[in-house]
Amino acid sequence: MEFLQPATWSEALAMKAAKPEAVPIAGGTDLMVEINLDHRRPATIIDLTHIKELTEWGMDDGRLRIGAGVTYARIIDELGDRLPGLAMASRTVGSPQIRNRGTVGGNLGTASPAGDAHPPLLATEAIVELASTKGTRQVAANEFFAGPKKNAMRADELIAAFLVEPARGPQQFSKVGTRNAMVIAVCSLALAVDPKRKHVGIGIGSAGPTPIRAAEAETFIQEVLEEHRLWERHVHCEPSALKQFGELVAAAAKPIDDVRGTADYRRHALAVLARRTFRWAWDDYRKSK
């Protein structure tokens, strides 16, 4: 096993270009489990924790650009007001020790359908910035997840950052687990309300081979809100519409039975979470006026 520790981003990209099979490590919360439990023996590991720019965030043309190495703990502490949905999701990631170390970049790199950061990134239409020695490119979160633990990255690329607009309206995140802390999602849902665009974004996790954006449910609820002028009237939508919304979210899922839960339960729970999170978000929206 070879351990590489680049000091700069360009050095890291050069190393990845020279050894495309090399595995990057940041917080280690995924890779180290695989190494410790003898599931994986990468030939080369590139440590990204010494690269300063990965740990930085700032505004970039109206969007927040957040380095791939920013930890969950910092997202909660430093970005909780601007990215409440992602911060809520971050609060459910593992334990304080994990949140101190784990990064959204790492979550994206592993691309597990259960990654807690993914539903909020989908709901807020975040963009993933990938880099190689050949340059950078941007991939919409919705396009980024390619299959179970597969993403759109090329072998020579590293994740530089993700870009997301600061919240303009209420956001929610909700995750079902069979323990009251430190649990991998049985299923999860993120919802982002954007009054300016009159848009409702929904991402679901642990309910299919990839994290999924519930596009039909988004369209449906937006139509309901338009049709009944709810954005302007600041009232709740009809329970029947909410019920249908929940069913559409559930229908977007492609869950399986596994040790964490059954497919039927996941669909059921997603419908419940959809109704509840929308209510909470809409309550906040109504109160904000």
Binding site: F3, M32, V33, I98, R101
Partner: peptide, 15 residues
């Protein structure tokens, strides 16, 4: 200065 699980830190990362 940050609380972490030592099992999830690769030894070289502590350099």
């Amino acid at each position: 200065g940050t609380l972490v699980c030592a099992c999830l830190v690769l030894a070289g990362q502590a350099q």
